[in-house]
């Protein structure tokens, strides 16, 4: 389960720099991470995120699935979702 409310307050710049105005923490995401984050923030479901990433980055289903799971785990670790 993800709490996406926290994502709504994040300031995300095109460079991949992310600032959390509630905690003052900042993070950097790569292009793939940034895309996943934007899609999560837009309320997209995991399947929609997966196909969007596969289209944009020409990666296999397995790779993308693992990358998304990995990224979401990191977001949880940092209490961002």
């Amino acid at each position: 389960m993800m709490d996406r409310d926290k994502l709504s307050v994040l300031a995300i710049s095109d460079s991949g720099f992310i600032f959390d105005p509630v905690t003052g923490h900042s993070y950097t995401a790569n292009a793939t991470g940034l895309k996943i984050l934007e899609l999560l923030k837009a309320g997209k479901e995991e399947d929609e995120i997966k196909s969007a990433i596969m289209d944009e980055f020409e990666a296999s289903d397995d790779e993308v699935t693992v990358d998304i799971q990995d990224f979401v785990e990191n977001l949880k670790k940092y209490f961002l979702v």
Binding site: P21, V22, T23, G24, H25, S26
Partner: peptide, 21 residues
Amino acid sequence: AIRKMTITKLGKVWNAVSIRN
């Protein structure tokens, strides 16, 4: 309100960022 980004050995704020919490 701020988050301390770096502190001195004595725990004093050296760099900080403003937050809205």
